[in-house]
Design a protein around this nucleic acid. Structure first.
Length: 938
RNA sequence: GGGCGAGUAGCUCAGUUGGUUAGAGCGUGCGGUUCACAUCCGCAAGGUCACAGGUUCGAGUCCUGUCUCGCCCACCA
């Protein structure tokens, strides 16, 4: 597996696919493999994630990269912790969405072209050529071909993203098992009276020619008009022939009218009343009278209803029960006739009189013209209001009464509310609990039938003889009621979310009582976007409780949306879409994943830019080079298989201060990362690992280790090597869930491709290595090392400030005080990292005489003098010291104030007070040293 | 009309039980051809943590109000 050399820069493209194929071929994504290798105990509680099924509408977008990153981080982390781990992948048929993309594709090509494009063999027999010729049979054929094509593409893309999911358990919402689950659920709910059929007002999309649910209607503001229209009233003393009214000759003799305002004049054709508020005095006398509907001549009553707002428009409302939710309600209360004037595609139907056949907007224009001509249009006002559109195709929704199937959700919602209230399901971040509960508490019945082809057929058959319904788990051959064989199935299919709602358990075999269902259900975490809490999360909880009696998952982790650089949603029409596969191709999957993870926090949107991905790519390269350094230091006697012993460091007594420091920092990191991982703070965890690796391991430890590695002392060299490899290897394990590929590639080289032995077994992949446990920290080493590091930083700072040639070694005289031994011990570190002249570095406890022409540094109780020959401007130096002195004075007075405060000393925890005292003492010491120096420069 | 989120360095964002002198990346300026890495190294500049109150010994962090931006929900013709 491992090559002998490492290139100067890390090349993700040549690595990632190879590693993924290897992992998959070894079965490392499967819980069974964990058991076989003794890495997890089947008695233990498993960690399970049901991957949100991707829609087979098309390829993955950047949001999916986020999904895969977050879920894979959790999965790999828990797997490494030795928990039985399952991540179950799959795809969703996405009924209405797929309809739309297929139809859109067919706008520009024939069926044959489309089939060829998605690599599907052309059928020999007769078949339709365009979308308009498609019937159910052909649409389904196309659907399956489409699913095959995009489903495969999606799966390949998940692989590119490094998703360590169990492909052998892959499911599809329309495969046999899941279809059975859908059917079982439908029949069960029907039997319990929780699914019913009825003719109600639903949201109708004239483009999809289907009903859609409330959630699928998106409202946005549109500029339109408010038309004020006069409805004439029949005079009680009218003595003319009735026909004149009917025929529209109402002009003569009509002296009274009522004025209504509407945004949709064409709907007046379906009006069956005019309503005013009962308390509206203006209309008191008109209530109970009869108005005549323009154009159609229908007689409609003037009624009162409290839903009418007297302050809007004229205070009188035309009532169209068939095409408006409010009007529908009013119609119900007053038992008004419901007259649907539209066809499926929103053209006017036969009820629309001579407007029949016109498109709804064409009709609107014409009717306005006609009203005006007849003197019935009073005025037209500009008006902006919120209009409902189809989520899938943006078409303006037409409320419409039609026969549909509904789920009675209140009883389901009650249990789902209770489960969340009781904490059986927990939201992360927590604030979404409220969003969920608010929606659940005001929930309306769910319209689940769709007049489409691609999806689960409603399992209901109608008897052509007796009219009875047969609702069945098995396809019936005869009517349940009368036994007649003349039955036909309901042509409609189910809302795509109906099957999605069953996903966590249908994928594990439900309704069969399978082993998987037993062991892996309920799942552990549901990870998804906050935008589908209602569509999906809420419904899964309801259906899970209904079907299995248990919640489908215990935690809901919600991520935010991935936006473009300017914070806009990515959309094709904006042209600001970042294709995850292009990013992966250029920067590597690790880089994309790491960027998304570390630049986001739970529940919050994140802006992505290629610059950020580039930074992550650089990080991957940095690790690669750190490893390359460690690796080369091990030659020629590279370890073969790393063994258990590598887990613990030998030579404890030979460890130097920097060794003890990096080990302590490393253990601190592990403890911190553990805490963060348990709290779903993946971004912060990733950042901390990066900070450690780059800012401490590379910038300091590796640099320091070079002293020994390039030295003569073979034993010291060996200690440095051991610490390097120990810390690097364990940190790679921490990083693995975040950057699976580069960590594996390096790990393979470190282990020489032979894996490592642990508890007598050989583990040949980092993804199966155990997650490191934190060991003891060495506080003293951290404090001491900090003194050395601070001194180095200060010297570097002074060098830069005085423009010392970076290559030049300089002299230094140090009064170490209490730290003298430490400084003497770490002399070489100072020499090398601060580029001091070894011969001219003098370290004493105190100095009898201090160099006059020198820059003075006071840090950590240590005085350091840099006699920068000919460069030190005493005046500038005095100013610099005075400035530092001021800073110290400021800090000291702050500390004093705090410590003088009795309440602080009494109430603050002891360690906080102690720390403050210590700080004060240090700053005072520093101040006095600076003062002495300043005085001496007089 | 309700609800939620955001407002911290020029930009993008961290900062989760309230506790050292508030951090990172990018950008900017200065300096770097030493054998892990220029996808790099060193140094620096840059912040009254939106505003006003409050709680507290102590507030970027908790509470109240205000302003700006964004999102979600809601049947107003």
């Amino acid at each position: 597996m491992a090559e002998k050399t490492m290139s100067k820069t890390y090349d993700p493209t040549s690595t990632e696919q190879r590693l993924y194929e290897w992992w998959e071929s070894k079965g490392y994504f499967r819980p069974e493999t964990q058991f076989e290798l003794g890495l997890a105990d089947p008695q233990d509680k498993p960690f399970v994630i049901s991957m949100p099924p991707s829609n087979v509408t098309g390829e993955l977008h950047i949001g999916h990269a986020m999904v895969m990153g977050i879920q894979d981080v959790m999965i790999r982390y828990h797997r490494m912790r030795g928990e039985p781990t399952l991540w179950l992948p799959g795809n969703d048929h996405a009924s209405i969405g797929t309809h739309n993309v297929i139809e859109k594709a067919l706008d520009q090509r024939t069926c044959d072209d489309l089939l060829t494009e998605i690599g599907y063999p052309l059928p020999e027999d007769d078949h339709p050529l365009t979308r308009w010729d498609l019937g159910r049979e052909w649409f389904l054929k196309l659907g399956w071909a489409w699913k095959e094509h995009y489903g495969n593409t999606i799966n390949q893309q998940i692989r590119r993203l490094g998703g360590s999911c169990d492909w052998q358990r892959e499911r599809f919402t329309m495969d046999e098992g899941l279809s059975q689950a859908v059917r079982e659920t439908f029949v069960r709910l029907y039997e319990e009276g929780l699914i019913y059929q009825g003719e109600y007002l639903v949201n109708w999309c004239p483009h999809c020619t289907s009903a859609i649910s409330d959630l699928e209607v998106i409202h946005w503001e549109e500029e339109t008009h408010l038309w004020y229209i006069r409805y004439l009233l029949i005079n009680d003393d009218w003595d003319g022939p009735e026909e004149e009214w009917r025929s529209g000759q109402w002009g003569r003799g009509a002296t009274e009218w009522i004025e209504v305002a509407t945004t949709r004049p064409e709907t007046l054709l379906g009006d069956t009343a005019v309503a005013v508020n009962p308390s509206d005095e203006r209309y008191e006398e008109l209530v109970g009278r009869t108005a005549v509907l323009p154009s159609v001549g229908r007689h409609i009553p003037v009624i009162t209803d409290k839903a009418v707002d007297p302050s809007f428009g004229t205070g009188a409302v035309k009532i169209t029960p068939a095409h408006d939710p409010d009007d529908y309600e009013i119609g119900q209360r007053h038992e008004l006739e419901v007259i649907d004037v539209l066809t499926d595609t929103a053209t006017m139907n036969e009820k629309a009189g001579f407007y029949q056949g016109e498109d709804r907007y064409e009709c609107r224009e014409n009717i306005v013209v006609d009203l005006e001509r007849e003197g019935l249009l009073v005025k037209t006002e500009d008006y902006t209001h919120s209009v409902g559109h189809c989520q899938r195709c943006d078409t303006v929704i037409e409320p419409r009464v039609s026969p549909q199937w509904f789920v009675k959700v209140k009883p389901l919602a009650e249990r789902a509310i209770k489960a969340v209230r009781e904490g059986q399901v927990q939201f992360i971040p927590e604030r979404f609990t409220k969003v969920y509960l608010n929606w659940m508490e005001g929930i309306h019945d769910w319209c689940i039938s769709r007049q489409l082809y691609w999806g689960h057929r409603i399992p209901v058959w109608y008897c052509e003889d007796c009219g009875a319904l047969t609702v069945s788990r098995e396809d019936p051959t005869e009517c349940e009621a009368c036994g007649s064989p003349n039955i036909h199935q309901d042509p409609d299919i189910l809302d795509t979310w109906f099957s999605s709602a069953l996903w966590p358990f249908s994928t594990l075999g439900w309704p069969e009582d399978t082993e998987d269902l037993h062991y892996f259900y309920p799942t552990t975490v549901m990870e998804t976007g906050y935008d589908i809490i209602f569509f999906w999360v809420a419904r899964m909880i309801m259906m899970g409780l209904e079907c299995t009696g248990e919640v489908p998952f215990h935690h809901v982790y919600l991520h935010g949306m991935v936006l473009d650089e300017e914070g806009r949603k990515m959309s094709r029409s904006w042209g600001n879409v970042i294709d995850p596969m292009e990013v992966v191709e250029e920067y590597g999957s690790d880089a994309l994943r790491f960027t998304l993870l570390t630049n986001s926090t739970p529940g919050n949107d994140t802006r992505l830019s290629l610059q950020k991905v580039e930074a992550s790519r650089n990080f991957a390269n940095k690790i690669w080079n750190a490893a390359r350094f460690v690796f080369s230091s091990l030659a020629p006697q590279r370890p073969t298989a790393m063994t258990d012993e590598a887990e613990t460091l030998g030579h404890q007594d030979a460890l130097t201060l920097p060794d003890r420091w990096i080990l302590s920092r490393h253990n601190r990191l592990i403890a911190s990362v553990n805490r963060l991982m348990e709290n779903y703070q993946f971004g912060e965890a990733g950042r901390q690992i990066q900070d450690f690796l780059w800012g401490e391991f590379c910038d300091w430890y590796i640099e320091i280790s070079k002293i020994r590695l390039y030295g003569e002392d073979e034993e010291a060299r060996e200690v440095a090597r051991r610490v390097l490899i120990y810390v690097l290897e364990r940190t790679l394990r921490l990083l693995h869930p975040f950057m699976p590929f580069v960590t594996e590639e390096i790990w393979q080289k470190l282990t020489n491709g032979e894996g490592r032995r642990a508890k007598g077994k050989t583990i040949d992949s980092i993804m199966l290595a155990r997650w490191p446990e934190p060991e003891e920290r060495d506080e003293k080493a951290e404090v001491e090392m900090e003194v050395i590091m601070a001194l180095v930083r200060d010297i570097r700072n002074a060098r830069a400030e005085y423009r010392v040639d970076p290559g030049k070694r300089i002299a230094a005289t140090i009064a170490g005080g209490e730290r003298t031994d430490l400084l003497l011990d770490q002399r070489e570190v100072l020499v090398n990292l601060a580029r001091l002249d070894r011969e001219q570095l003098a370290i004493f406890p105190t100095l009898a005489e201090k160099p006059r022409q020198a820059v003075t540094l006071v840090v950590g109780g240590v005085e350091c003098y840099l006699p920068l020959a000919g460069m030190v401007d005493l005046e500038a130096e005095r100013k610099r010291l005075a400035r530092e002195l001021d800073e110290m004075t400021e800090l000291i007075s702050r500390s004093e104030q705090l410590l003088d405060n009795e309440e602080f000393v009494a109430k603050a925890p002891a360690h906080v007070v102690d720390r403050e005292r210590e700080k004060l003492a240090q700053n005072e010491a520093r101040k006095s040293k600076l003062q002495v120096r300043l005085d001496s420069l007089g």
